[in-house]
């Protein structure tokens, strides 16, 4: 072999590292887009904290969190948030009562029993249910579910917790079903086969092997769905009423935290007044509750996935 000519050799040498300025500009631009999400979270926290702080200069935190009367727009004014929390919990409890078992049962049916053809019908239907705007569910509650309840319990008020609860449960059902489905599918087939090989029935395999093995995933799905139900706004605004009240009677009119925020922003409460600032205090509470639930659920889900990966 002969040596290459000198100029030939020179072109073979690798270049010195150049500053790829275009690459750097692009990297920084992309990074800024990614960091925007963190900025969003920070903005939410800053906005809610500063506005709520002004509110708490006028109303003590104790009165807000522990007070049992919520009449910020009426004289005598009272700023106890518990009736709103109670109203929210009533809706969420009702929705949980329906959506969690039905969602889990749907996931079990899809994962353990249903043939592929059925899956290919039910899955898109669930996706459509999940994609229906919440205002539509509100309309459905008001014009279909409420008359139905009133025909059974004539004493039911026009606006009532039960009706809103039912549509909220329909709304979160697809979420429960699809997240539970993911969790159940993560359980290895070998575990099921092991149980079947011991002569267990499908019921026993599901309830004693599959569901317990995916329990943390299932519970996390429940928490995520409930957090979603807590933040739900339009259906409860339209159907559950505007009466902050501590009650466990689902046939009565109540008010949730979200519905209260909408009520104030629809009205002509002057910006800057204490009444107006209540929405930030309520929103801060709402944000804190849902954020905690989401953080916990995501952490549990991540651990759960790691187990089976």
């Amino acid at each position: 072999m002969t040596n290459g000519s000198p100029e030939n050799t020179a072109s073979l040498l690798v270049g010195k590292v150049r500053f790829h300025w275009k690459e750097e500009v692009i990297r920084i631009a992309l990074f800024l887009c990614a960091i925007l999400s963190v900025a969003t979270t920070l903005s939410i926290v800053v906005v809610l904290a500063t506005e709520a702080f002004t509110f708490f200069e006028n109303v003590s935190l104790g009165e807000f969190l522990l007070g049992g009367r919520w009449t910020p727009l009426l004289v005598p004014r009272s700023f106890g948030v518990l009736p709103l929390v109670c109203g929210t919990l009533l809706i969420v409890a009702g929705a949980a009562l329906i959506a969690l078992p039905v969602g889990l049962a749907t996931a079990v049916y899809l994962g353990e029993y249903a043939p592929d053809r059925v899956r290919s019908i039910v899955k898109p239907v669930l996706e459509v249910l999940a994609g229906i705007p919440t205002v539509v569910y509100g309309y459905f509650a008001l014009t279909f579910v409420t008359p139905l309840i009133r025909s059974i319990f004539p004493s039911t008020q026009i606006f009532n917790a039960a009706s809103a609860s039912i549509v909220v449960s329909i709304m979160v059902l697809p979420m429960v079903a699809s997240l539970c489905d993911d969790s159940l599918r993560a359980v290895p087939l070998s575990l099921r086969q092991g149980a079947y090989a011991l002569g267990a029935t499908s019921f026993e395999v599901t309830t004693r092997v599959v569901v317990p093995a995916s329990l943390s995933g299932v519970v996390a799905s429940f928490v995520l769905a409930l957090s979603r139900a807590i933040g739900e706004t339009m259906a409860v605004t339209l159907a559950a009423g505007a009466t902050p009240r501590m009650t466990i009677n689902p046939l009565e009119s109540i008010q949730t935290m979200t519905a209260y925020i909408v009520q104030v922003s629809l009205g002509d409460t002057p910006a800057g007044s204490v009444e107006y600032q209540t929405i930030f205090a309520v929103a801060a509470l709402l944000f804190t509750i849902t954020l905690m639930m989401n953080v916990i659920a995501h952490r549990v889900l991540r651990r759960f996935r790691e187990v089976y990966e």
Partner: peptide, 20 residues
């Protein structure tokens, strides 16, 4: 060393290495 130049020196452009 590639043609006597260090592949892993700070000054070597990895993008250029892969072209050669």
């Amino acid at each position: 060393l590639y043609m006597g130049a260090e592949l892993y020196s700070e000054e070597t452009d990895p993008v250029d290495v892969r072209r050669k």
